[in-house]
Structures are given as structure tokens and as C-alpha cells.
Design a protein around this nucleic acid. Structure first.
Length: 110
DNA sequence: CTATTGACTACCG
DNA sequence: TCGGTAGCCAATA
């Protein structure tokens, strides 16, 4: 099974699964919630390993609501369609009303 | 052990 | 929120 060193990844997956439907969060927000505010890159990096898990990676975007990770999805616009399918509006790889749909774990789980 | 990398963020102009 | 650069951190080779 998973090693102890992956506990950071597991935390990322755990938080990502808790993202409500129709909401999104940023890598930095998750990282900060985990106590590793400077490890935002690791959060995204962990998502790469999220394959095979029920982690809604499409709900995790960068701080500006930009779909930087859509590149890693199967389709070219799969990530965007997934978000739109949840009632969000995405234009030019950027989530509209990002501030409104933003979900902060450190606040929601508080 | 060191070097490389990456789904980031902050800062500067 | 326009672009380019620097800094950070953890995993991988």
C-alpha cells in the first residue's frame, strides 16, 4: 500500500474529494490548508497521481481560476466541459465568477 | 548525497 | 491579471 512519504499526496486527494459540486479551489488554498502553503506545485503534481482515484481534479485550478491543468486531461477541452457540466462558466480556459465559485477548504472545513 | 522537474505563486515593470 | 523572472517544495532519477 501507500508509503508514509505519500501522506502529502493523500492529504491533497482527501481535500479534493471534499470539494462540493459546482465549486472549485486553487492549489495554493489546498496546500495552505495542509500546512504547506509553499507547496502549491506539489498539489498539482499530486493530481497527476490522482489517476485511478475519485479525485475531481477538474475542480482544482490555479489561483486565477485558469485551467492550467486541462492539458493533462484526456481531451483538449474535457476539463472545461466538466466544469461547465457542473454549472460553471469557463471562457478561454478561465473560470468566470471564480471568486463566487471559489471554495476554500480552510474556511469550509473550519 | 545532488540535479532535475513541475496541474504554482509572488513580485516587478 | 499582461509578461517575464525568481522563489519554494516535494518527488523522482
Amino acid at each position: 500500500m501507500a508509503k508514509k512519504t505519500q501522506h502529502f499526496y493523500d492529504n491533497v486527494y482527501a481535500v479534493a474529494r471534499q470539494i462540493p459540486y459546482g465549486r472549485v479551489t486553487s492549489y495554493g488554498a489546498i496546500a495552505r490548508y495542509l500546512g504547506a502553503a509553499r507547496s502549491a506545485r506539489m498539489v498539482g503534481y499530486a493530481m497527476t497521481n490522482s489517476h485511478g482515484k475519485d479525485v475531481p481534479a477538474h475542480r482544482v485550478v490555479n489561483r486565477k481560476g485558469l485551467l492550467t491543468g486541462k492539458h493533462h486531461f484526456q481531451g483538449t477541452n474535457l476539463m472545461q466541459q466538466l466544469l461547465e457540466s457542473e454549472g460553471l462558466t469557463v471562457i478561454d480556459n478561465q473560470i468566470q465568477d471564480f471568486d463566487t465559485v471559489f471554495w476554500d477548504p480552510s474556511v469550509a472545513l473550519d
